[in-house]
């Protein structure tokens, strides 16, 4: 569904993305993991069109996104930090986004309901807690029933109940054929949500496999341990290659 081909992004001397090739399919949930500065955010922003790649192509459903904006109809994005204009009410925000996409009559308000946002629709954004703003962000991402959902640290500011609601929603939508791309530092969350793991380091895809494969390959059921095992064995291999 989303194909990244030889994607390169150069910031001055820093190569944020180094020839990334990915083929992301529907009904899969990809966990994007890697240390800070490994290029996760750049990758997401490239797909969203917020970052213009230095070279390479991004195809969504077979067509390039370069210079386009309408493909974003198929994407729902939940940003890591949600900040909205201070004096807007929650209701106004939803109204605004709906007006921007007036072609969508059929909306998914499930998260608005289950997060209890309906009752606080007339609250101003500046009065909201970080968690509530995250809820708003999540609800917005799912609102238009997009085929692709990109969630950047979705559970970071959420309380346990909201986290559960979101996880449930992700699982359900994934099973309904949606494509998810999720980053998170909380690996235990990813364990529940992801079907596939993309491990990035220094701008390149270091490892890509299904969660199941990774677990069997490393013999670790916990994602965190599996990944550190993965890194260790790789490093070992490199050392062996270097020492004659």
């Amino acid at each position: 569904m989303i194909v990244l081909h030889q994607l390169v992004k150069q910031y001055g001397n820093v190569r944020a993305l180094n020839q990334v090739n990915l083929d992301l399919k529907a009904s899969h949930s990809y966990a994007l993991v890697g240390p800070n500065g490994s290029g996760k955010t750049t990758l997401i922003k490239s797909i969203l069109g917020l970052v213009v790649p230095t070279s390479g192509t991004i195809l969504i459903n077979g067509s390039s996104i370069a210079g386009q904006h309408n493909y974003r109809r198929q994407i729902g994005y939940m940003p890591q930090i949600s900040r909205y204009p201070d004096n807007l009410r929650i209701g106004q925000l939803f109204e605004m986004i709906r007006n921007l996409r007036s072609e969508y009559r059929d909306v998914d308000e499930e998260l608005i309901q289950s997060f209890g946002l309906t009752q606080i629709m007339d609250k101003r954004m500046s009065t909201l807690s970080g968690g509530t703003r995250q809820k708003v962000g999540a609800a917005l991402a799912f609102l238009f029933k997009p085929q692709v959902l990109i969630l950047d640290e979705p559970t970071a500011g959420l309380d346990p109940i909201a986290t559960d609601i979101l996880k449930e929603k992700v699982t359900r939508e994934k099973n309904a054929g949606k494509l998810f791309l999720i980053t998170s530092h909380i690996l235990s969350d990813l364990e529940e949500l992801a079907t596939d793991i993309i491990y990035m380091q220094e701008g390149a895809v270091y490892h890509q496999s299904s969660l199941h494969e990774l677990q069997t390959e490393t013999g670790q059921s916990r994602l965190g341990q599996a990944i550190s095992m993965l890194i260790r064995t790789r490093e070992q291999k490199i050392k062996e290659l270097l020492t004659p």
């Binding site: 969203l48 994407i75 940003p79 900040r83 204009p85 921007l100 996409r101 962000g137």
Partner: peptide, 17 residues
């Protein structure tokens, strides 16, 4: 700069830059 995040949010919608 205060509306930077909001602008990125809007740009993830089908809105021209």
């Amino acid at each position: 700069y205060n509306s930077y995040e909001f602008m990125t949010l809007l740009l993830s919608q089908p809105v021209k830059r």
